[in-house]
Write a protein that binds this DNA or RNA. Structure first.
Lengths: 149, 149
DNA sequence: AAATGTTTGTCAACTGAGTTGACGAATCGT
DNA sequence: ACGATTCGTCAACTCAGTTGACAAACATTT
């Protein structure tokens, strides 16, 4: 018996408007004042792996190092991160959140967690786990598809 | 007992790279020659509701009517759709896929279905159903969040 | 019939996300 | 010492999508 992928197809289609809505909703949050989703991703990344380099962040967040670098410059100018020289490489830098940056990403995270917690009450742990599992698998699947040829 | 939304949070975060990979993978498909994801969405929409107007498509696809209109012009020039006057409104038009457009969206759909069918074998029907369910609910949830001020 | 509000198509300017290419300086491997 | 790789930076570009404006057509109210 073959699995009919209709549901999956439809769900994947919905990814586009979903992301738009996530972005819009999240940017509307008062806590986000002036922080774009790209910047937010960088702050989150630095929160998880303090002292990361730009290329490391790029790999973790699946973005090009040049783009990461540009965002790092923006948030540095905004005083949300600071960079220090990398003793192991004269041209390389490591990045850390400043207290201000730390406060902002923490507030954003708390706000979003709260909203998601509300949402998640409508679902069973099994459903949420399945969502997580399939989402990550899809990510890997399409990343591979995109790479071949 | 509260649901810990950590998994959900992480999955939602993954939406951004996921969409990028989907787009890249799908545009790499030889069948897509010259068809952007936006155009593809319009073709899909017209396939589901033939004779739709631009504002109707916009509502269905959750895009602004102006943007839909621009894409409609593109695919019309490419000969994938045709428009006819709307007898009920002198300024309005209805849109239909041409045989060429029909062939293209059918081929795209078949190709993607095939790939997704392969992928979906790794999951139980319950997991796929849960993914679908949560994905659509998230869409509605964030669409609402984005709307309220 | 006239005034007012809404819908439609179209044009234009803009933002945001992200990629790609290039270049020089630094580092690594051999 | 030499070639390949890595890192930072600048620049140009694409793509998706929004917003604003304007005029024509239509609907509604008075």
């Amino acid at each position: 018996m073959t699995h009919e992928p209709d549901q999956l197809y439809q769900a994947v289609q919905a990814t586009r408007p979903l992301l738009r809505h996530i972005t819009a909703a999240v940017e509307r949050g008062s806590l986000r004042a002036g922080v774009t989703v790209g910047q937010r991703a960088i702050l989150e990344g630095l929160s998880l792996t303090p002292g990361a380099t730009a290329p490391q962040l790029g790999a973790a967040l699946q973005m090009k190092r040049q783009y990461v670098s540009r965002i790092l410059q923006e948030v540095q100018r905004a005083g949300l991160i600071e960079r220090r020289a990398n003793p192991e490489h004269a041209r390389s830098h490591r990045y850390w959140l400043t207290p201000k940056g730390e406060a902002i990403i923490t507030a954003i995270r708390a706000d979003e967690m709260e909203k998601l917690a509300l949402f998640s009450e409508a679902f069973s742990p099994a459903e949420l786990a399945a969502y997580h599992k399939v989402q990550l698998a899809l990510n890997g699947f399409f990343a591979n598809l995109a790479k071949e040829v």
